[in-house]
Amino acid sequence: MCDVCGCGHHHDSKSPSTSHDHPPFAKGGQGGIIGETRIIDVNESLLKSNESAAISNRAHFDEKGIFSVNIISSPGSGKTTLLEKTIEALKNDINIGVLEGDIETDLDAERIRKKGIPAVQLTTGGACHLESSLVHKGFHELEHQLNGKKLDILFIENVGNLVCPSFFNLGEHIRVVLVSVPEGPDKPLKYPKAFKTSHVFIITKSDLVPYFDFDIEKVKKDALSINPFLNIFVISAKTGEGLKEWFDFIKKQKHD
C-alpha cells in the first residue's frame, strides 16, 4: 500500500507522478474510498460547540437573575486587583461570585476567598483562554459553594491573554478589557478583536502615567475608533482614581 495516500499503488520514489495513475479522490483513491461519496452543506460557525454552551450559560445566568462579567487582559494588567477592590467596596451591597481562570494554580481564587467571597478556580491546564463548557462546570461548583444564596454579579476572570479569549463567548452579559499603563499605548491597535468584542475598556495603573509615554486621550481615541460603543474608565487601584465611577457602573447592573 502506498503510504503517501493509501491508494494501493506503489510509488516510484524518483518519479512518484508516473506510477500514480489514479485521479485524486476517485474511488479506491485517496484515503481508500470504497463507498459512494456525497457533499453535505453545513454552513455553520467553527465555534458552534462553544457558542451552544455559551447560550446555555447565558440562559442559566438570566434565569437566576445574575449579571455576568467576563474580564480579559494581558497577564499583569490588574484583573485580580480590580476584583479585590470591587469586592471590598461592594460586598455589603451586592452578592458577588467569582470564577478565576488560569493555566495553573489556585492562587487567584485564594486571593478572592480571602475577601470573603465564593470563588472557584478554573485551571485550563495549558489552554490560553476559558471556554464556555468550563465556565458551565465552574458555575455549578460555585452554586454548590453558595448553598442556595443568591448571586447578583458573577465575575469571570479570564486567563491573562489579549488574543484568544476574545474568540470565545462564555455567555457573559458584558466583556471588560483592561490595559495597564506600563503595557504601552498601542494595545487597542495591536489587539483590535479584544476591543471590538468588549463593552467596557478600563485603563489601569493610571498613577504611573507620569513615568510612561502613555497618552490617555490618544489611547481612548484609538479604542473608540475600533469600537465606538466602548464605555471607558481610567482607574488606579493604588490612588483610588476612577474607582468610584466603576463601582457605580457595576452597582447599576444589579437592577438591570
Binding site: I34, G35, T37, I39, I40, D41, V42, N43, L46
Partner: peptide, 21 residues
Amino acid sequence: SYNLKILSGEELHIENLEVEV
C-alpha cells in the same frame, strides 16, 4: 467616510464536507 458596514471578512465557517457513505 468612516461610517462603514462589514459585508464580508469575519467568516469562520464550515461550508461543506464531502463524505463517503
